[in-house]
Simulated assay, not measured.
Amino acid sequence: MSSVSDESGRRRLGRGLAALIGDASSEFEVVERVRGIRKVAIDLIKANPKNPRRLFKEEDLEELAGSIRQHGMIQPVVVRPAPNGGNGYELIAGERRWRAAQKAGRHEIPVIIQDVTDREAMEIAIIENVQRQDLNPLEEAMGYDQLIQEFEYTQNDLAAVIGKSRSHVANTLRLLKLPEPVKQYLNDGALTAGHARALIAAPDPAALAKRIVEEGLTVRSAETLAQATISEPHGRAKVAKPDKDADTRALEKRLSDALGLSVQIRHKPSGAGEVRLGYANLDQLDEIIRRLEA
């Protein structure tokens, strides 16, 4: 098994489909510039069961099928010989186009055949979908998790291969911890990744997600709501506390302005005390950790 840290492999796979079909300013140029495109009977091509993209909207497929009927299939799909000595080919990238071509009644479609390993096929499938923004956040997280579980990637490896930051990879993977009702909202497009990340540490993310969807809350409002439930997980009313002196309030404001975070200072009768930093999302937490480690 080749190491994912291999720099040439990273450059090749990190460019996604450009590594396979060359840079071009349009799909028409792609077809003209690629060598090795051939026509293959559509019934010889099978879907990849590990494709990170799971959801295909029927209306989108019908629209693409209409375009294929009128103009033909302009951009080829990428396939590899069927693994384990099977007949035909397995899709690496382009399942949406393959499905639409079937609806359009095409018997043959243009393909690029690549002889790649399971690992490379998975990388290319994820990269292509991420670059095209075809994956919903949960599908993206599941794709990353597959690479980690099956091919022993680290989060740093993934970040290098897909061209994203390590914090993006980490935050995306955290979505897998959410309960099923929240995941369904993500799949349906009712929640964005920003909404979902705000719910990860909440005591009842499903209830919060329902409220966010019903009230049409922004990501910022969702973060504020989630932070309030984290502070008071059982919804208890705040106990009245003596007002802080003016010096303490001024110091809190000074620190809050400097850090861009919520800051609370609490004094104890013994003269000791504590400083609490509140964060609205996981990106802010990463920033706190970065500053403390600097």
Rank of each mutant, 00 (worst) to 15 (best):
D6P: 05
E7N: 05
R12P: 02
G14L: 05
R15T: 13
R15F: 12
G16L: 08
L20Y: 12
I21P: 04
S25H: 09
F28R: 15
V30A: 07
V31D: 10
E32Y: 06
D43R: 13
L44I: 04
A47K: 10
P49A: 02
K50D: 14
P52Q: 00
K57D: 10
D60R: 15
A65S: 03
I68K: 05
I68Y: 01
Q70N: 07
G72M: 04
P81V: 05
A82W: 08
N84V: 06
G86P: 09
G86W: 07
I92V: 15
E95F: 07
R96C: 05
Q102V: 04
G105K: 01
H107W: 10
H107Q: 15
I112F: 00
T117L: 05
E120W: 02
E120C: 08
I126M: 14
I127E: 11
R132G: 12
L135S: 00
L138E: 03
L138S: 04
D145H: 07
I148V: 14
Q149L: 09
Q155M: 12
N156H: 13
V161G: 06
I162T: 14
I162N: 07
G163V: 02
G163N: 03
G163F: 05
K164F: 11
S165F: 04
V169Y: 06
Y185M: 03
G189V: 03
T192W: 01
T192F: 00
L199A: 01
L199F: 04
I200F: 01
I200W: 02
I200Y: 08
I200A: 01
P205V: 04
L208T: 06
L208R: 04
A209T: 00
R220I: 11
Q227D: 10
S231D: 15
S231C: 06
H234W: 14
H234V: 12
K241V: 15
P242M: 15
K244D: 13
R254Q: 15
R254A: 13
L259Q: 01
L261F: 10
I265G: 03
H267T: 10
K268N: 15
P269A: 12
G271C: 10
L277K: 08
G278F: 10
Y279C: 09
L282W: 11
Q284D: 09
R291M: 06
E293K: 14
E293I: 14
A294W: 06
